[in-house]
């Protein structure tokens, strides 16, 4: 499977662009947090496409963002429970 490029994305509609990135991102996140992969991927897809492409190429960037998303998600869930 060839890497996702900006030019490949440019030819797709905006919501399809997110779909294309999500399809690449999800397996990488699943390997880190299988149970929360869907939610974490959904959160990360709110980031700019250019940064998402960078994350696909850079495991360190991806890991950092996944950890950030995980903290936000846990804080959100804690808030829901105490509300």
């Amino acid at each position: 499977r060839e890497p996702l490029s900006a030019s490949m994305l440019a030819s797709a509609l905006p919501h399809v662009q997110k779909q294309m990135i999500g399809d690449r991102l999800y397996p990488l996140i699943y390997a880190l947090h299988s149970e929360l992969a869907g939610k974490i991927t959904g959160m990360l897809l709110e980031i700019d496409n250019s940064e998402l492409l960078h994350m696909l190429e850079s495991p360190e960037s991806l890991n950092a963002k996944v950890e950030e998303a995980l903290i936000m998600l846990q804080a959100h869930q804690a808030e829901e429970q105490t509300d």
């Binding site: 997110k18 991102l25 939610k39 991927t41 959100h76």
Partner: peptide, 26 residues
Amino acid sequence: SNGSSVNWPPEFHPGVPWKGLQSIDP
């Protein structure tokens, strides 16, 4: 008790059309 924040974040499923942002935006 059925606030929309409970549905956050939108969950991505591989192979399923993504409409996460559309479901959040008005």
